[in-house]
Each structure stands twice: as structure tokens, then as C-alpha cells.
Amino acid sequence: PGLLEPTSTLVRVAKSAGTLGIAIEGGANTRQPLPRIVTIQRGGSAHNCGQLKVGQVILEVNGVSMRGREHRDAARIIAEAFKTKERDHVDFLVTEFN
């Protein structure tokens, strides 16, 4: 867990499907300053994993902080984490609290 986020959870999502299958909203300079999961698509890697939930806020992706990142930057980091062949999983540090 993150040192400053005692309620955070580390979720490892295996790349078990061709898509990650989440929709996110938020980012720096919006009403939702950290990216939040708004949809989990059935059949995607995130859904298969079973541990990510709608409403969770993403704090880190593969150890990279989402703080201060605008929406497109956060989305790009998540997309690249899923696309890279260096790992067969993506690690999300998430929290239920906004």
C-alpha cells in the first residue's frame, strides 16, 4: 500500500484479454483530480481480474503516480502500461476514497 494512503489497495491485472476494458474520468484541473474508474467492460482484462471496481480512484499505475496529471496524460500512461510487452500485467494502486 502507498505510504500516504492507508486505505489503498494494490491490484495486479493480468493481460488476460485483448483490451483492459475500463473507462476513466478525471485528472488534474478537473472536478475529479485523480482518475476514477467509471466503467468496467465485461470480458476485458480488468473484469477478468475481478478486483477493480467502479468508483475506485487510481493513485498509481506500475508505480507511476497519477497526481498532477491531466486526463489525457493519465489515460496515455494506462494505455501504454497495457500495451507494453515488458510485463504481462498492470499494477494499479487504487483507493475507494475520493
Binding site: A23, N29, V38, A79
Partner: peptide, 15 residues
């Protein structure tokens, strides 16, 4: 007058 009320909503991206 809260600052957060003046911030725009975010777009949504499917990943």
C-alpha cells in the same frame, strides 16, 4: 464560491 465548483468536468476515456 467553492473553487471546485468552478473546475470543469472531465472527459471520459475508454481504455
Amino acid at each position: 464560491r467553492e473553487k471546485r465548483l468552478t473546475l470543469p468536468p472531465s472527459e471520459i476515456t475508454l481504455l
